[in-house]
């Protein structure tokens, strides 16, 4: 979706246009869900926090300023704040305890389920050793395909600090890969 179309939809959604808000939901629900899933490692929490993100976005859409951030960046910031609250309530640091995808549910794509299950251990191995902020950068960069500028806005940091976080994260992963190779 082009930026112009997106801003038009957001403007309509600000006037409580249910069709516009529905289209925004359709467009971004997967991104928010993916971000929360890889942060919490739980499908149930991903659904719950995704729902909360859109409810918050709906309440606060009047305050959204397209000059300060793009709509997906703004949504991810809401999702991130909710994820932080979730970890605070749980009283633990996020550690990506990736949950295995169900194999019996009717609406799951079998191919996708097999792929997720195969990747789960690998994700644990590569990502769980990173700090919380490094994990966030990796998810935003490699799953959501955000640019460094977008990541900086979503995390409330400078582009320079994102580059530095990315470098340290990739260096850690490189070491893990080297150890695996022997």
């Amino acid at each position: 979706m082009k930026d112009k179309e997106l801003l038009k939809l957001v403007k309509q959604a600000k006037n409580y246009d249910s069709k516009a808000f529905g289209l925004l939901y359709e467009q971004f629900v997967s991104k928010v869900y993916n971000y929360i899933y890889y942060r919490t490692g739980s499908f149930i929490e991903a659904e719950d926090l995704t729902a909360q993100t859109f409810l918050k976005a709906f309440d606060a859409i009047g305050k959204f300023d397209g000059q300060k951030a793009s709509f997906p960046t703004w949504l991810i910031r809401i999702a991130n704040n909710l994820t932080i609250d979730y970890f605070r309530l749980k009283g633990r640091r996020p550690e990506v305890p990736i949950e295995y995808a169900c194999e019996n549910c009717d609406d799951c794509n079998l191919e996708e389920t097999v792929l997720i299950n195969a990747m789960s251990d690998r994700v644990k191995g590569l990502i769980s050793g990173l700090t919380d902020e490094q994990q966030q950068v990796m998810i935003l960069k490699f799953n959501l395909h955000f640019t460094n500028n977008e990541i900086a806005k979503a995390m409330g940091k400078t582009e320079g600090s994102i580059k530095s976080l990315q470098h340290r994260a990739l260096s850690k992963i490189r070491k893990i890969l080297e150890e695996e190779d022997g």
Partner: peptide, 15 residues
């Protein structure tokens, strides 16, 4: 390392 991360974070769909 970047490509390894890219591989382990595939896009998944909500139900």
């Amino acid at each position: 390392a970047a490509l390894a991360v890219d591989e382990v974070l595939p896009e998944i769909s909500p139900s």
